[in-house]
Every structure is written in structure tokens, then in C-alpha cells.
Write a protein that binds this DNA or RNA. Structure first.
Length: 290
DNA sequence: AATAATTCCAACCGCCGGCAA
DNA sequence: GTTGCCGGCGGTTGGAATTAT
């Protein structure tokens, strides 16, 4: 016998999320923290007629803290290209090196941009051992694709259970949510967004209410006494969940292995080259090597 | 201005491993 | 030990947005 069955699929909503649903989901996670997806779905607590899977996806790919949206930088592009050559299509593993980007984002970017560039430049390959990057009209492309098991394992190991809580600051997502709320308030009736549901008890361990010491961002502050980042929800400053703290920017990344150092050193090198190319008005006839 | 083609990306689907009952 | 759910992952798709004709 396994676990009791999840809710049936009758009445489960699909398709694009509405601002109202986002608000409800954010409110629920604000109360309960990410991870209790089983309890979110349509037959239970949050009041969303969405399956837990859909909620998790919406959170991890769109609403979660620290997500950076918009164009990829040359640096990010270089890292993706480089790691893809080493790891293959292990988007989650690649995303662990770009905490501000979701695996879905990286996958989309690869499929819509980088793959084409790879195809376009595959005729003229230059290698440096395992991978070669080219510059063609302001872009970079990888050519070879030798898989490296050591790097693969390393990347997988980096994908911690808290990988959904990125090593970037909470602010960018608070910004996301702020924008979301702003957009919602503009379109919604004068009545406020639905209040958080309280089907689950408030957990002091998860959201400790702390006095605010310093506020540099309307939605984010910092408690020097505890070293905790405080998020402002509903006008109340609350300490971010432990998972956020452990993997937030306050937490230093684990020591890099030589291979990781190598990856980032070369990525940084690529960025410098890209910057130089930007300065030279996009003249990219010079091959860029990793 | 209208239509077609292309691009982009949010969301869904199916599979798998881990784990709870 | 077995069963079946949950969470995570990668592949795929549908439709909105953008660009080209």
C-alpha cells in the first residue's frame, strides 16, 4: 500500500495562471513555505483549483525568489554553452550554476537561440581540448561536446534540495511579486487581494518576526543582529525561511573545485572578451576561445 | 492595413527515483 | 518487500507576440 491517493483530477484547472491565482499561491507559500505542494492542490488548502505539480512549476519557474528575467548576458550565455557541452541537456544541473535562471528558461534559451547558433557555426570549429566557443555576429557558440562525468557528478551534487531557493538575493523576486501585486491591484476591484489562507499553523521556526534594523528596499531589509534578511509581507517584516537563508546570498558558496574554478575563470574571461567586443561596436570576427 | 511566417516562452506531459504506508 | 504517490526533470506543445511580406 502506498500513500493515500492524491485528489482526483476532476475540476483541476489548466492553462495560463491569472494574477489572482499567483497572489493566492504566493500567499500560501508565504504562510507555509515552498515544498508543501501536496497540500496546495485543488482539493485542499490554498483554494487553488490547480494540481500540486502546476503550483510547483509556477513557483519554481516564475514566482520564486531571485528569478532574473529578460535577456541573457554574454557571460550567462557562455556558461550555458560551456556547461551544455560538458553536461548535455541536463538543464537542472546547468541551472544550478546560474541560480537566477530557471532550468526551463535555460532550456528555452538553448532551444530558441543557442542551438541555432551552434548549427550556424558548426562548420568552422576550433577546439581547446573539450570545447570551443566562437563569436559570430555578437554571439557565442560551442562546437564540441565531450561529456565529462566528473563535472556531471559535481553539477548534480550542487543541485541541493534547496536549489529552488537560489543564491541570489530575495529582492529580485520581491520585486517580481511587488510588480505582480501592483499589476493585480491595477486590474482588480478596489477590494484587496484575497488574504492568505490559514489552514496550516503559523510556524515561528519558518517565519520569525524580527525587528527591522535597516530598510534599504521597501520590500527587503536586513537585521544586523541576526544576520537575517527580512522580507516585508503585508507590512510585517519577517525573517526569510531557513532554506532561503542557507542558500541565499548571505551564504557563501561552497568551495569551488578546480574544475569549477576553471569553468568560472574561463566564463569570466569570455565575459571580458565579450565586453571588449561590445566596446568595439559588435565587431565579432575574432574567434572567442574558452 | 492585412495576412503569413517566425519567434518566444509558459505550461503541460510523461518518465523516473525516492520514499512513505 | 511491494505498492503507489510525490517531487523533480527533460521534452514538447500551444498560443501570444513579433516580424516579414
Amino acid at each position: 500500500m502506498g500513500r493515500p491517493p492524491c485528489c482526483d483530477k476532476v475540476g483541476i484547472k489548466k492553462g495560463p495562471w491569472t494574477p489572482e491565482e499567483d497572489i493566492i499561491l504566493v500567499s500560501y507559500i508565504q504562510e507555509n513555505g515552498p515544498g508543501n505542494w501536496r497540500e496546495i492542490d485543488g482539493c485542499d488548502g490554498a483554494g487553488l483549483m490547480r494540481c500540486s505539480k502546476s503550483c510547483r512549476l509556477r513557483w519554481t519557474n516564475y514566482l520564486r525568489p531571485g528569478i532574473k528575467r529578460g535577456n541573457f548576458t554574454a557571460h550567462e550565455e557562455g556558461i550555458i554553452v560551456h556547461l551544455q557541452s560538458l553536461l548535455g541537456n541536463r538543464w537542472a544541473a546547468i541551472a544550478s550554476y546560474l541560480p537566477q535562471r530557471t532550468d526551463n528558461d535555460i532550456k528555452n534559451y538553448w532551444n530558441t537561440h543557442l542551438k541555432k547558433k551552434l548549427a550556424a557555426s558548426s562548420n568552422s570549429s576550433v577546439s581547446k581540448g573539450h570545447a570551443a566557443i566562437f563569436a559570430d555576429d555578437s554571439t557565442t557558440t560551442v562546437v564540441s561536446s565531450a561529456s565529462n562525468p566528473e563535472v556531471t557528478q559535481m553539477a548534480i551534487a550542487r543541485r541541493s534540495p534547496f536549489a529552488d531557493c537560489p543564491s541570489s538575493s530575495y529582492a529580485s523576486s520581491m520585486d517580481n511579486i511587488s510588480k505582480l501585486l501592483d499589476g493585480f491591484m491595477k486590474t482588480a476591484s478596489p477590494s484587496p487581494p484575497p488574504p492568505p489562507h490559514h489552514h496550516h499553523s503559523y510556524s515561528p521556526a519558518y517565519y520569525d518576526v524580527k525587528p527591522v534594523v535597516e530598510v534599504s528596499n521597501p520590500m527587503l531589509s536586513f537585521d544586523h543582529m541576526s544576520g537575517a534578511e527580512l522580507a516585508c509581507y503585508d507590512g510585517v517584516h519577517q525573517q526569510l525561511p531557513t532554506s532561503f537563508m542557507e542558500h541565499g546570498r548571505l551564504n557563501q558558496a561552497p568551495p569551488l573545485s578546480s574544475i569549477e574554478n576553471w569553468l568560472f575563470d574561463e566564463a569570466a574571461e569570455a565575459e571580458q572578451v565579450a565586453d571588449l567586443m561590445d566596446l568595439s561596436d559588435g565587431c565579432c570576427s575574432v574567434p572567442m576561445m574558452f
